[in-house]
Computed example of a mutant assay.
Amino acid sequence: MVEDANLTVDPVDEAFDVLFATLLDPAVLIDPARDRFVAANPAALRFLGYDEAELREMSPADIHPHELSRIDAFFRDILREGRKTADDLSCRLRDGRTVPALIRADVVRRAAGPRVLIVIRDQRDHQLARLGGAVRQLAHDLKNALSTAQLVCDRLAAHEDDKVRLAAESMTRSLERATRLCAETAQASRTGPASAPERERFLLADVLEELEVTVLDPGSTARRLVDASGDAVILDADFDQTYRILLNLARNAFDAGARELRIWGRHDSTGATIWVRDDGPGLPDGMRARLQTEKHGVAGVMGTGLGLSIAAELCRGHGGALELEETGPEGTCFRVTLPAPA
Rank of each mutant, 00 (worst) to 15 (best):
T214D: 13
D77A: 14
R277G: 06
G271K: 03
T242I: 05
P281S: 06
L208D: 10
D285M: 09
E14N: 14
A145H: 05
A5D: 07
Q137M: 01
D95A: 00
T293R: 08
L68I: 14
L24K: 12
G282Q: 07
T98I: 15
N41K: 11
S229W: 10
I310G: 07
S147G: 13
D125Q: 11
P60I: 01
R201P: 05
G305P: 14
D268F: 06
P218W: 03
L102W: 09
T293I: 03
F334H: 13
D285S: 11
V135K: 01
A53V: 10
D72L: 07
D31N: 12
D240F: 02
D87H: 00
I103C: 02
C91L: 15
A196Y: 10
T185V: 01
E14G: 08
P65C: 07
V276R: 04
G319W: 08
D106P: 00
C315F: 02
L204D: 11
L19F: 14
L117H: 11
L175A: 02
M302G: 15
L181V: 12
V107A: 01
I63N: 12
R177F: 00
R199L: 08
L216G: 06
F37I: 03
R266E: 15
N6E: 13
D25V: 01
A105G: 08
T273P: 11
I234H: 13
D62C: 11
L48H: 08
E198T: 00
H140L: 03
L181F: 03
Q127K: 00
S229I: 07
T85D: 04
N6I: 08
E313K: 12
M287F: 07
A272L: 02
E209H: 05
D162M: 03
F239Q: 10
L156T: 07
D206A: 15
V336N: 09
L338K: 06
V336T: 08
A256Q: 11
N252C: 05
G303V: 13
D285R: 13
A188M: 01
D4P: 01
L175D: 04
H140C: 00
M171W: 12
L246W: 12
L131R: 11
T8G: 09
A21E: 07
T293C: 10
N41G: 05
R251N: 15
N6A: 14
D88P: 12
E330K: 12
G328Q: 06
A311D: 09
L45E: 03
G271I: 07
R97W: 04
T332V: 07
R290N: 10
A168K: 05
E14P: 04
F37T: 09
